[in-house]
Nucleic acid binder design. Structure first.
Lengths: 191, 191
DNA sequence: ACTTAAATAGGACAATTGTCCTATTTTTCT
DNA sequence: AGAAAAATAGGACAATTGTCCTATTTAAGT
């Protein structure tokens, strides 16, 4: 029962703290306090802090993959899929307004730290990119699918950053509406 | 001659290091090494690390204001002004691809640190916002000037983040072209 | 030239960091 | 029940952190 149980608790606590406080600003002591284990106990589950980070990134990748599959299962059309993506800005607004986008902020931090796991963290972006690209392809935008995917990715990324800085829900709603309009115009063009 | 000279050197070194390494990951020792002064000497110029940060933010605000004025001086039309703004993505590409947008990344970091200077750092965003809004107003977009300003702000912000993550100049160029097109369509509508 | 103030160096300080070691307890499997 | 393995606690360790103190040197103003 305790098989890998504590390990999982550590990963979950670290995942949350890395997001809310940043990777570097989160210490072993911080995680230990949440999980309620002694600091020394860490070494049995993770030899270094970087190993925890790698585990956190892996779970984020898995969670993202599951979420993308779920969106496809729940949506009848690629348009609906894309709107599920756009909607996360509002779904996760309470977190975004305080801590920004979990994907973008981690990538930015690791870029500045010149951290060896930077590439791994970027994979989450790639997951979204490929998935979005696929949706656009299904909207018969075969030629420019990747460009449209990257465009939507950066658009939403920027809205998360600015929404966080200005703490302005009204603005985020406005941009979400614009994205949906943009999407509608896009699918009308070719359908 | 040495009047505030060292102080200025400290600010410049900190400005650069805060951008490239992040605020928290930059230590007094790091700055001291660049400026070539003893660590103890800091206390004479800045009592705390936060004071250095405030000074850095102030110079960034000043530099930004100057840049915006310069853009207006050099540009004949508001369209040209807006294109100067869009072009920084390419002008500063070598830095952006390594360390992201200096404004956005600092705001994100301070948000996670729950730092008291977060609001000050956000002022740089506000400077751009107001300036962009003014340009759009001059394009006779009086009603939606602020919305357009925020839209361009988040767009470019997202491109900086994704450009940094994927290290993809081709993509950035593509988005810059799209922004220019978007701008052209916008000014044709009302002119 | 002399006094006063500014600037600098060097180091002390407690606190915190990531890492690692060694006992002890708990669980698991036979 | 007993042996082997996994999990946990507690603390040692050197290194680094931001902060702060006290001399000494340099510059400025009269």
């Amino acid at each position: 029962m305790t098989q890998g149980h504590t390990r999982q608790l550590i990963i979950e606590a670290a995942d949350d703290l890395f997001y809310r406080q940043g990777f570097e600003h989160t210490s072993f002591a911080d995680i230990a306090e949440v999980v309620k284990i002694s600091r020394g106990n860490f070494y049995h589950h993770f030899k270094t802090k970087d190993e925890i980070l790698d585990a956190v990134i892996k779970t984020r990748i898995n969670r993202t993959e599951q979420m993308l599959v779920k969106w496809e299962d729940e949506s009848a059309t690629p348009e609906a899929c894309l709107k599920s993506y756009i909607r996360i800005l509002l779904t996760n607004w309470t977190m975004i307004k305080e801590y920004g986008c979990p994907v973008g902020t981690l990538c930015s931090e690791l870029a500045k730290l010149n951290h060896s796991s930077k590439k791994e963290a970027n994979k989450v972006f790639t997951l979204f990119r490929i998935w979005l690209r696929n949706q656009f392809k299904q909207l018969s935008h075969t030629e420019d699918a990747d460009m449209l995917a990257m465009h939507l990715l950066s658009w939403s990324q920027g809205v998360a950053t600015l929404g966080n800085a200005f703490d302005d829900l009204q603005y985020v709603k406005q941009e979400v509406d614009r994205m949906c309009d943009w999407l509608d115009r896009l699918s009308k063009k070719t359908t």
